[in-house]
Design a protein around this nucleic acid. Structure first.
Length: 287
DNA sequence: AGGGGGACCTGTGCGC
DNA sequence: TGCGCACAGGTCCCCC
């Protein structure tokens, strides 16, 4: 589910439910996610107040009172569900209520946080590539310390400096979170299409004009995707169960064999593999 | 140091 | 209908 726009959509969906709330109960599945559950995780969270929910790249930063921070990452298939207070009696966590409709606890539920107003938060992650961690300073966390600039804020000069000297393809470089943090496979493909740049072009050889086009395309595609509530492919990206809408606006991603959407182009979208990931592009208008 | 491939997982969709 | 394979929004780790 999650690249930056999806994570930001999740943050915006969660924030009004969790900001200022105190955590009163914590339950984990005990199953290991990408990282083991931190030592004393439940104990550290129980009684903590969530002061703010922030985002850095694809990471959610849960700022807690006492200067602590919970970091979460959704991996490939992570999802949060908010179960607002219903007043309905519930059992030992085997069954959750969501409005009038029930929600059965699933085998892939890995964390449940009960908040002081009765809200329950459930984290579900079939592939278990997500993780939770605790720290004092997320900027110094090993997984966040080397992240590049946020896509919404990156300048052409910054991106040029970070691509300089790289001999590999620009597609692969943009997926490197140390170059720019938060883009994933979908939005890299979409940004390169908008900028009319071939994903195969050498990263260090973009030149000023292409770099400027690329930065503008990144800004646009990220802003549009966030405004649309992200993309929903197999999972619901949003905590309220609504689907994001941006996937309907994909110009190249997952469109192999279909005509290029650019009016003046009669090319066909192709898929090929770079560094083990599918790349979608129009060989006709992306040079 | 950059870049490629494998590893970590489960689910889904497709061809046979 | 069933089976096997390819593939999926991420990122770390090892090796060249």
């Amino acid at each position: 589910m999650p690249e930056l726009p999806e994570v930001e959509t999740v943050r915006r969906g969660l924030a009004p439910h969790v900001t200022g709330r105190r955590i009163v109960a914590v339950r984990t599945s005990g199953q290991r996610l990408r990282l083991p559950w931190p030592e004393g995780f439940g104990q550290a969270l129980s009684g903590a107040r969530i002061e703010r929910l922030e985002r850095r790249a694809k990471y959610l930063l849960w700022r807690l009172d006492g200067g602590r921070c919970m970091i979460s990452h959704l991996g490939m298939s992570g999802r949060f569900t908010v179960l607002p207070p219903t007043g309905a009696a519930h059992g030992l966590g085997e069954f959750y209520f969501h409005g009038a409709a029930g929600r059965q606890a699933g085998p892939h539920d890995h964390l449940r946080l009960d908040l002081d107003d009765g809200t329950r938060l459930v984290y579900t992650d079939p592939r278990r590539f997500g993780f939770f961690d605790l720290c004092a300073d997320p900027a110094a966390h090993p997984m966040l310390a080397k992240l590049g600039p946020e896509p919404a804020a990156v300048t052409a000069a910054q991106l040029a400096a970070r691509l300089m000297g790289r001999r590999g393809p620009v597609k692969t470089a943009l997926l490197d979170q140390a170059v720019i943090a938060g883009l994933g496979n979908i939005y890299v493909c979409e940004a390169l299409f908008r900028a009319r740049i071939s994903p195969k072009r050498r990263a260090g050889a973009l030149g000023l004009k292409r770099t400027a086009r690329l930065v503008a395309a990144i800004h646009e595609v990220i802003a549009e995707a966030i405004a649309a509530g992200g993309s929903t492919l197999r999972d619901h990206a949003r905590v309220d169960g609504e689907a994001g809408a941006f996937q309907q606006r994909f110009a190249v991603y997952d469109r192999a064999g279909r005509p290029c959407v650019r009016a003046a182009c009669d090319g066909v979208v192709r898929r090929f593999t770079q560094a083990g990931r599918g790349t979608f592009h129009c060989p006709r208008c992306q040079r």
